[in-house]
Design a protein around this nucleic acid. Structure first.
Lengths: 177, 177
DNA sequence: CTAGTAGTTTAGAATCATTCTCAGTCTCAT
DNA sequence: ATGAGACTGAGAATGATTCTAAACTACTAG
């Protein structure tokens, strides 16, 4: 059940009716450099809120960086057995308040948390309808351009101010099919 | 807070860089004929599961058909004050088991329920990040074609079998901005 | 009719992810 | 060092959702 560390998994396919080759790829492993930069950003975000970047909070960010996918409270518990559950929840709440972490809704009863896109990159999710596991994927530029092109117009549309969007794919993950 | 009954609300806009006019429109009010057909389908789905289409279940379907958006348990409670909460939950669970209703995850703590797309039509959601309200929209054919074109390829991709997708737009609804 | 069977309903209890409380600890600026 | 305020942990509290057990209803066979 561990996230596979190594080469970014890559799926290449030709959508029907399109001449170009399109790729959906797993978000790649972060370099040490990138990890440091993200920790710095988190530091700044917390400081702006008059809060400290303590070991507990850093440990949670580390888990998010390592697993590279939205994590549930049990993921955190497994990775940090010594961290009390209530502290983990409070840390996540604090990190959310500081706009470092966002909570997302999945297919099961468990909340999942991920770093905000400002700290990583815009991406989408593959949600397993059987086990609830969530995988990050980066979508091709063309798709992204098309979708945002359409949805941005909503900002001017009467009645709704669009802020962001999500595209999720439901299906069966490699373990469950 | 009631869903506006009448002409389908329609927003027309020109996405930047595209020459065509694109429309995102609110799902239209159902005709009496369509309501009857949906009730018939629900009937069949339940019968296939050896279950009856009782008044309580019918009342919940009616609420879904009338509000034309994913409903929370409080929406149902408001519409059907005499129906016990536990019964409402069980009805929703039964209807889910019969593949008539699906549960969706939103931005707040409350589960929301809607008719499955087989009974209505493929659509997407506008989610209010402030009050959690969800509105249905039907996306233009071109957008739908593009997105499904890309995502269908996932079915052949290694590691994940795609079944369906969702596109949600986050922002502020007309009441909350 | 009339009992039997199986699905249905309900009120209340139970579950359990999540949040809150409070007492004790740590950090940092003065 | 000291005070103010942030942080932590253990356990209690909250509250949406699910479960339970007992009563109910619709249909069927005799």
């Amino acid at each position: 059940m561990k996230a596979k560390i190594g080469q970014a998994e890559r799926w290449v396919f030709r959508p029907p009716g399109l001449a170009v080759v399109v790729e959906l790829m797993r978000r790649p492993v972060l370099t040490e450099q990138e990890r440091v930069e993200i920790h710095d950003s988190v530091q700044r975000c917390l400081t702006r809120y008059g809060q400290r970047y303590t070991d507990g909070r850093r440990a949670i960010i580390e888990v998010l960086l390592t697993l590279r996918r939205p994590v549930s409270i049990t993921d955190i518990e497994d990775a940090l057995p010594q961290l009390p559950r209530s502290s983990a929840y409070r840390h996540l709440a604090d990190l959310q308040a500081a706009s470092v972490v966002s909570r997302l809704a999945g297919t099961d009863d468990f909340a999942r948390f991920e770093l905000v896109e400002e700290l990583t990159e815009h991406h989408h999710h593959l949600l397993c309808t059987y086990c609830g596991r969530v995988t990050d994927v980066v979508s091709p530029v063309e798709l992204e351009r098309t979708v945002t092109g359409y949805l941005k117009g909503l900002a001017k549309a009467e009645g709704f101010i669009a802020q962001s969007h999500r595209i999720d794919v439901f299906g069966l993950c490699s373990s469950c099919r």
